[in-house]
Design a protein around this nucleic acid. Structure first.
Lengths: 334, 334
DNA sequence: GCGCCCTAGTTGCGCGCGCTACCTAGGGGT
DNA sequence: ACCCCTAGGTAGCGCGCGCAACTAGGGCGC
């Protein structure tokens, strides 16, 4: 049974005293230090004592002595892939926790309003990003003592190369093309926080449309709170647009909603496809076609990269193998 | 201009050497230690040197010496209040960052699948919860060296007392009662991760209905992926239920969607009210009535509590003053 | 008996910072 | 001349742990 927690925390010295060995021996046992032989008998006594006394190593002291912390910071752009990604990350967090690492996720890539990035205040040992960081961000991390950064600075230059950005946008367009649409619009969101990501997705979509010989109309931002979505739908419809590529499922819902309110039929008068396959896509009436990425695999990959940086373990899967595909629903199929 | 970062990090000893004073003096200046007078001239030289050399204090060392970390962990139940809460917390994070604290939020209260709670691996100085923690959780925190826990163990016993739990559920029922509904159903979600919270909200709703002399039917869990929502809607409608209180907006959308697909009119044949006023509530067609809490004020309060625990600053606002109200939309108003 | 190696440990330093206790020069009151 | 006070510092310990360098105590070949 664990003893009543005294005012002072249990340190490794307490265990040493309790067992009757030196503090170093305790450390060797608890850390299973390679290259150190400790007899099975002693090892057992140390472990028993640690459990009985309720020993928890002092993070600050361990970090200081080791010269690095055990925090891994994961930076996701926007709320890319949203709730499903979060859930999938649990598995990665579990694996990392087993190795003694804490996984902290920062949902938005670029916090606004003068909030210092988490890596400055947390002191993570590793920062993993979905996309590449800007040179300023890298400098800030380095100054804050972050030793390992992934993707490596300059490894993959921009959002365009990150999985699920250009890929998903192209698939949206391909899907509409296959269904016979020849004149499409791209809908974005009025959010300064993710201009970059939106821009990249929109560019990829436009480019793909051009490759396929489709016509596109100018990018428009919609917001369900003002009249912009209703206006956009009216303009598009008058302009002969038959389908809309939306930045994400919220935008798709906004557009589809505005179309329905305007008396148009979705998808007969205006088809809509979203991105990320978030809950709203399947809950909306009609259900929204969307792009789904294999978040489980993505999370597994990110965890593997993190463990590689932290522990030196080999990375098994690869980024580019990520499965991305269209989830066709009634908002395009009718 | 900041110098090129050498291999070794800049320590306060480097500054001391650079300025020509002792390390203690550097510490006094950088921490503005109360009760220590340092001449303005020396202070300026230290600060200049720190900036020039790009000094960043070593968190681990500071934490060790201080005996406490500068991490504040915020535990939110479920994804209560979802994205809006997250956004509102930014302000709190900024204030805390100014005081040198890192705010880490853990979205779900009780992680599943053997993931150790973040407080074990992160070593936060303060843990703030939206609701009270279980005795086991408190013990686990204590063992992990967490010194300050809010709400204080035993301060407010259960979910029922947390703001936005019973309150919101009662308002949902009140709203339906005012609109003339007399026989209602309560819809939950099939998610083991938040049984407690759902149970509390459902209980509060049922109890309120009874107080108002309304009839209720048994609680049902719905899931849009199987046929359970369609079945629930059919049963409810056959049973004379005219309105549904949903655990959250996703559940409300599920129910409303199933009703529409079944050819019922929302709200004429079946009214639905959600909770949290998440994006889907306003994007759905018809837009869903919901419960909105003042997340800005909530976040401000949580930040104030955190700062109080960390810094000893007084707490100005109060928990109970939180503004919770119905956002009436077409899913109940018609 | 002697030198050698191997096992199972121990001693002790260093990590970088917070902070208490101490020191010193100069000034003013008596 | 003496003492005391204060501003403006300095010396150095302690935090708990990781780990390198060292060592006591055998077994073993020659």
């Amino acid at each position: 049974m664990p003893e009543v927690a005294a005012s002072r925390r249990v340190t490794s010295a307490d265990i040493a005293k309790d067992v009757g060995v030196s503090r170093a021996t305790v450390g060797f046992v608890l850390n299973s230090t390679p290259g150190k032989k400790i007899s099975e008998a002693t090892r057992a006594r140390v472990l028993e004592s640690a459990a009985r006394l309720g020993y928890q190593p002092n993070r600050a002291a361990a970090d200081l002595a080791r010269g690095r912390s055990k925090i891994i910071l994961l930076v996701l752009p926007d709320r890319l892939l949203g709730p499903s990604m979060q859930a999938s990350l649990d598995e990665g967090a579990r694996v990392l926790a087993e190795a003694g690492y804490a996984l902290v996720t920062q949902p938005q890539a670029r916090p606004l309003g003068g909030i210092p990035p988490l890596w400055e205040t947390l002191g993570p040992d590793v920062v993993i990003g979905w996309t590449t960081f800007t040179p300023e961000e890298v400098m800030s991390m380095r100054a804050a003592g972050v030793r390992r950064i992934r993707p490596r600075p300059g490894e993959s230059a921009r959002y365009d190369q990150a999985p699920g950005v250009a890929e998903g946008a192209r698939m949206q367009v391909d899907h509409l093309h296959e269904l016979g649409h020849r004149r499409i619009a791209v809908a974005a969101l009025n959010d300064p926080q993710m201009i970059e990501l939106q821009r990249s997705r929109a560019d990829a979509a436009m480019q793909r449309a051009e490759e396929l010989g489709m016509e596109t109309v100018a990018l428009r931002s919609v917001d369900h709170r003002d009249g912009s979505s209703a206006e956009a739908v009216r303009i598009w419809h008058d302009d002969g647009v038959t389908a809309v590529v939306a930045y994400n499922d919220d935008v798709a819902a906004t557009v589809a909603g505005a179309a329905i309110e305007a008396g148009l039929r979705v998808p007969q008068d205006l088809a809509v496809i979203g991105h990320d396959d978030s809950p709203i896509a399947s809950l909306f009436v009609p259900p929204l076609s969307s792009i789904r990425m294999d978040t489980v695999e993505a999370a597994r990959y990110l965890a593997a990269v993190a463990l590689h940086e932290a522990d030196g373990r080999p990375v098994t899967s690869t980024w580019t193998a990520l499965d991305t595909r269209v989830v066709a629903r009634r908002s395009t199929l009718g």
